[in-house]
């Protein structure tokens, strides 16, 4: 099967899974932003994405994407290290064109996976998983808004999330255009377009995550609106 045993095929798998995850992240970020405006709306979304069959199926799919993406990352890295040979250069001078992120995708990926583990522990474990197993917590499994508040009340988590999101930004700025390049949708003109799109897209997605995290960390009580009243956050803006 060419997706496993050819170099371009393996890269296609990386790029398709990666780009699908970018779409997921985009959706997730949009969803999070809702929490800034309405706790009720946000919790409704949480309920919608609770332990329903379609949400579970989507989660399984998502998990598969993540696992394949990570698995292939390691396969590619091992192969590439072998291709590099056993001798290392005594001196290397990185050309300006070569971006830092492009050479450190695996390291960034590892940070992202660690962040993901924390994230799953903070939220998924307490929400979807709790709902499945029927665990009882002080905060209910569909009360997403409360869970955000709870999590970001802890400054350690806030710092970890910020680091995680920075790594994600670097990973995405390379990942998006690189994915399109691997799929062959690039060239002298589209290369620059995709580079630009990558930067903007990655920045918007990460900014949305970051705003939510920081807002909950700095001013948890002025968020989420209350019973349809005017949102203080909006007033502040």
């Amino acid at each position: 099967m060419w997706l496993c045993n050819s170099s371009i095929g393996r890269k296609v798998v990386m790029s398709v899974t990666g780009l699908a995850l970018v779409l997921f992240l985009t959706f997730h970020a949009c969803m999070n932003v809702v929490a800034l405006f309405s706790a009720e709306a946000y919790n409704q979304i949480c309920e919608l994405l609770g332990s329903n069959w379609y949400a579970l199926a989507a989660t399984a799919g998502l998990g598969a994407l993540v696992v394949i993406h990570i698995l292939y990352a390691f396969i590619l890295t091992i192969q590439n290290r072998n291709a590099r040979g056993s001798n290392r250069y005594d001196k290397t001078d990185k050309p300006e064109k070569v971006e830092w992120a492009s050479q450190n995708m695996l390291a960034l990926g590892v940070i992202i996976v660690l962040g993901l583990a924390l994230h799953l522990f903070n939220f998924w474990y307490n929400m979807m998983f709790a709902e499945i197993v029927g665990a009882s917590n002080p905060i209910g499994p569909t009360e997403g808004f409360e869970w955000i508040k709870e999590t970001f009340a802890n400054p350690v988590f806030v710092v970890l999330y910020v680091i995680w999101l920075c790594a994600l930004w670097f990973h995405l700025t390379h990942g998006i255009w690189s994915g399109m390049q691997t799929l062959g949708w690039s060239g002298h003109i589209w290369f620059n377009r995709w580079k630009c799109i990558s930067q903007i897209w990655a920045t918007i997605v990460v900014a949305m995550f970051l705003i939510v995290a920081l807002a909950f960390a700095l001013c948890p009580d002025c968020l989420g609106g209350a019973d349809g009243k005017v949102v203080p956050f909006e007033m502040a803006m």
Binding site: Q79, N80, E96, S102, Q103
Partner: peptide
Amino acid sequence: MVAKMDELGFGNCTNTRACEAV
């Protein structure tokens, strides 16, 4: 050509652009 390149043990491109820079 790609099959031969893979067979000979060259690595997978990760779009770092080091090649075009040099």
